[in-house]
Design a binder for these strands. Structure first.
Lengths: 152, 152
DNA sequence: GGGATATACTTAACATGTTAAGTGAATGCG
DNA sequence: CGCATTCACTTAACATGTTAAGTATATCCC
């Protein structure tokens, strides 16, 4: 069998970990996890979003997001209100405190990203992202193996 | 701030998820998680390994590995014995049952990997892996921000 | 209108990720 | 030798990943 440590999943995992390791300490100083930071960033870019939309944007599964939103709300970093038209949906937005917190972390975050870009090379970084996007596209629709054309 | 959904960490995360989504269903059929599968594969390639060595190979943190080994041992998929020379160390190896289980999953796993390779392109896959390795190298030694040259 | 279905979450249960603390066995060294 | 330190794990505690089940509201459609 292939040497699994050279497999694509492991390469992706190690690369991502090498990158995230740069960011985690600064986030941790502010008591934020990587996922919480993703949510705040996603919310900062828009007025408000539904939970499902936010899950798609921040690439989190519903249950994880539910828990994280509960916690972020308790910390007053986000706000929620149920939509008027459809009581099932709730609109989530970042709070003033949330914006302040983001402002305190964003500079470090940007600096780290810049350093990573400098080390790896801006052009190569763009190429890598392009390839990653293509990989994702190649596998889109190949699904989880339990939809169309099931064999049993 | 950058559109975070186009950031390198998100690109890596989405790409890896797109890949892993192909494998998880088959593993699940055998009651294996992705991490358990990594450990079995790592062990299958060698006679025996110390826990620390296995952690490095399977890219798992010690505490995760401790729990997983406990569970795999309970399922008789692996075996452990403490080293004679150093009672702190324990040597882990795959069991006969473990080998059998691997044999039952490996063909599907290989087929899925082949399909991914076919879709994305073998050459591009090699290039991608090369770039991922370089990225990892670029960031090696840039550490977690709390070793040499701490600023405070 | 109203019951079946679908939708938008939330909860539950179990596995792993992550950091800190604990445990027992080796090592360093005065 | 003996005691402090280091080492190789393991446990603990809390957050997220993942799948299944639950809940409340909307929508379909006869």
């Amino acid at each position: 069998m292939r040497d699994f440590s050279r497999s694509l999943p492991m390469s992706l995992l190690r690369a991502r970990e090498a990158v995230m390791r740069q960011f985690r300490p600064k986030l941790r100083e502010q008591g934020l996890t990587e996922q919480q930071w993703r949510i705040l960033r996603a919310l900062a870019a828009i007025e408000a979003a539904e939970v499902t939309e936010l899950a798609r944007t921040a690439f989190l599964l519903g249950p994880s997001l539910s828990r994280i939103l509960r916690d972020l709300e308790a910390r007053n970093l986000i706000e929620r209100k149920t939509a008027k038209a459809d009581q099932r949906r709730s609109m989530v937005s970042i709070s003033k405190e949330g914006v302040k917190l983001m402002a305190s972390v964003a500079p470090s975050s940007e600096a780290i990203y810049a350093e990573i870009t400098r080390r790896f090379g801006a052009r190569k970084l763009a190429e890598l992202q392009e390839m990653l996007g293509e990989l994702e596209q190649s596998l889109a629709g190949l699904g989880a193996g339990d939809e169309a054309s099931a064999e049993e």
